[in-house]
Design a protein around this nucleic acid. Structure first.
Length: 674
DNA sequence: GGGCACCTAAACAGCC
DNA sequence: AGGCTGTTTAGGTGCC
């Protein structure tokens, strides 16, 4: 230990303390109101389109949750199940969608083979991308067109309210019906497009499930608000409707495949769907129970038809279905690709739901509805099954819905073990949570942080890493691999909303860790004293604990070696396309674009990684180490940083969120780290 | 039950 | 004097 005993000048007086840095805006509420733009208008003036809008949002959210559940169930039976993890957490039957990305039943050799024989060539993916872009363009046009039409109709309706011309109202109603039929046709066109994608095995839509809007789910609404609005609107319109001049008979069964015009399309008004804001939360649970109750019930089998995406083969009975499943959907390249796409779909849905949950929470917080907020939004989410939830998390809220699979206020964590089970109840937990994940499990903290960056920034969730790991991460993220104490503080507050509170506690802990661990070296610098990381020392404390469980090691080797590049690629793809993961309330359909892009990146990344395996021993990338995580003594490489996630983090540093926070203002970005 | 890692709290010292 | 930084100790918890 080469601690200089001398003290140093204060490093950075301009550093921003305690989360007041520019990037620390909490949940962006700017788009909050877009889902209910007419909320301030008197109830009487709420048009039927608005009513439909509200209704549709509620229903869409509900349906999305159902779809999510079903898709997760599909994933579970798609050969990606991890029996080891499941038996580790038998009590938590939450479908682990993201964790399912771990192809643990696939041996590395198989995976390599599959990836090399990938059915989706880059050219095909390019075509797919182009198709998606065309689709998005089409949706934009559709939305604009529909908006114009709707404005005209609203205008006419207003005039009619003034003029009271029943005949004209009927005419308008007819006009609206005609228009909606027109819209329906356009939507069917889009549906055909989606179907064609599905047939190619590139996009999966639940058969028998109405084509669902992937996007409009995101315009979060408070259930009580919906309920209130529903009451107001219904009370205001019932009398009007009974009179006969009912231009609001919007019972077109427009299932709204289009995500571009979600807010205006009408749908069957379902009072049941809106009378209880919690209904949609309960629904998936009920469905999952129904599957358990029926022995021959299978998520991939229904109505005598195989529900494998894009299959729809008729199976007379369950046995023949099983035969069909084993023969036609065995582990091969196509099935694997379809599974992967399905994962992406589920992931996107989860992200959207996460966004909605976040928004809801922000709204509740803003409105000081603290009583219900922890129950509704922060649900314990089990994304990674190898980690147990803390007792406080699983028992904290008896009224909550602990088995709801769609509890997205949690980081999206890749298939790797460990670090991302964040029980959202821990957001409000002050006491210690004993499960911390240092890098001993070879969990890439940088990857997790990068992938859940927005989540950690916005949600007061304690990051599941030790202080030492976080400090090290902060230092390694810096351009010069060194930070002052104050800069470390700033990194904590910048990256994690959790560390914007109780500063005295965690700052003390940071200092304590810096002093305690030999891996942190204090160096006198021009800026004063800075802290650096002694990787050799850090590695010394890593291999413990893991050595005792060979099966776990093997699992981690497999999953980590193959999934990390996938997730890294996905993340890179998102960043590359400047598509914020959580920005979904906007128009268009970034989901599909993201999806295709993610698939491309994922495949490329996976193949690249597979090909570079065993040969790449450069300091920057060392997948080999991920495969042999136990023996790290010989090489001072950090397996965590050596496999790409670091570059992701570096990339993330160029995001706007980072640019305005000038912890490293003295130096431009230093391209040469060492 | 012991060892270890980790967390929290606190006391203390030196410097500005 | 008060805040910041850095060190050290103590007690507690959870895991192996």
């Amino acid at each position: 230990m080469m601690q200089e005993s001398g003290t140093e000048t204060k490093s950075n007086g301009s550093a921003i303390q305690n989360g007041s840095s520019g990037g620390n805006h909490l949940l962006e509420c700017g788009s909050l109101r877009e889902g209910r733009s007419n909320g301030e208008t008197p109830a009487v003036d709420v048009g039927t389109a608005d009513l439909a809008h509200v209704q549709q949002q509620q229903q869409a959210l509900q349906v999305a949750r159902q779809l999510l559940l079903q898709q997760q169930q599909q994933q579970q039976v798609s050969g990606l199940k991890s029996p080891k993890r499941n038996d580790k957490q038998p009590a938590l039957q939450v479908p682990v969608s993201v964790a399912m990305m771990t192809p643990q039943v696939i041996t590395p050799q198989q995976m390599q083979q599959i990836l090399q024989q990938q059915v989706l060539s880059p050219q095909q993916l390019q075509v797919l991308l182009q198709q998606q872009q065309a689709l998005m363009l089409q949706q934009q046009q559709l939305q604009e067109f529909y908006k114009k039409q709707q404005e005209q109709l609203q205008l006419q309706l207003l005039q009619q309210h003034a003029g009271k011309q029943p005949k004209e109202q009927q005419q308008v109603a007819t006009q609206q019906l005609a228009f909606q039929q027109q819209l329906l046709q356009m939507q069917q066109l889009q549906q055909q497009h989606l179907l064609s994608l599905q047939r190619q095995g590139l996009l999966t839509i639940q058969p028998g499930q109405p084509a669902l809007p992937l996007q409009p789910l995101t315009q979060g609404m408070i259930p009580t608000e919906l309920q209130q609005l529903w009451k107001e609107v219904t009370s205001a319109h019932t009398t009007e409707e009974t009179t006969g001049n009912n231009h609001s008979s919007l019972d077109l069964t427009t299932t709204c495949v289009s995500s571009s015009a979600p807010s205006k399309t009408s749908l069957i008004m379902n009072p049941h769907a809106s009378t209880n804001g919690q209904l949609s939360v309960h629904t998936p649970k009920r469905e999952s129970l129904s599957h358990e109750e029926h022995p021959h019930s299978h998520p991939l089998y229904g109505h005598g038809v195989c529900k494998w995406p894009g299959c729809e083969a008729v199976c007379e009975d369950f046995q023949s279905f099983l035969k069909h499943l084993n023969s036609e959907h065995a582990l091969d390249d196509r099935s694997t690709a379809q599974c992967r796409v399905q994962m992406q779909v589920v992931q996107q849905l989860e992200l959207q739901l996460a966004k909605d949950k976040e928004r809801l929470q922000a709204m509740m917080t803003h409105l000081h509805v603290k009583s219900t907020e922890p129950k509704t939004a922060p649900q314990p989410l089990n994304l990674v099954s190898s980690v147990t939830l803390s007792k406080s998390a699983s028992e904290a809220s008896p009224q909550s819905l602990p088995h709801t699979p769609t509890t997205p206020t949690a980081p999206i964590t890749p298939a790797t073990q460990g670090p991302s089970v964040i029980t959202t109840t821990s957001m409000h937990t002050v006491g210690p949570i004993r499960r911390r994940y240092s890098d001993k499990y070879n969990v890439p903290i940088s990857s997790d942080i990068a992938q859940n960056q927005e989540f950690y920034k916005n949600a007061e969730v304690r990051p599941p890493f030790t202080y030492a790991s976080l400090i090290r991460q902060a230092i390694l993220e810096s351009p010069e691999k060194q930070l002052t104490l104050n800069e470390i503080y700033n990194w904590f507050t910048r990256m994690f909303a959790y560390f914007r509170r109780n500063a005295a506690t965690w700052k003390n802990a940071v200092r304590h860790n810096l002093s305690l661990h030999k891996c942190f070296v204090r160096v006198e610098n021009v800026k004063g004293a800075v802290w650096t990381v002694d990787e050799v020392e850090f590695q010394k404390r890593r291999p413990q604990k893991i050595s005792g469980n060979p099966s776990l090691i093997k699992n981690m080797q497999t999953s980590h070696a193959y999934c990390t590049p996938l997730n890294a690629a996905l993340q890179a793809s998102m960043a590359e396309n400047s598509i914020p993961l959580y920005t979904t309330a906007s128009m268009g359909n970034p989901t599909l674009g993201n999806l295709a892009s993610a698939i491309r990146e994922e495949l490329n990344g996976a193949m690249e990684h597979t090909n570079s395996n065993e040969s790449d021993s450069s300091p920057g990338r060392s997948p080999l180490q991920a495969v042999h995580p136990v023996h790290v003594k010989e090489e001072p490489l950090d397996p965590e940083e050596a496999e790409g996630p670091l570059s992701l983090v570096t990339t993330a540093n160029h995001s706007p969120d980072f640019d305005h926070d000038r912890d490293y203002e003295d130096e431009p970005v230093n391209e040469d780290m060492e």
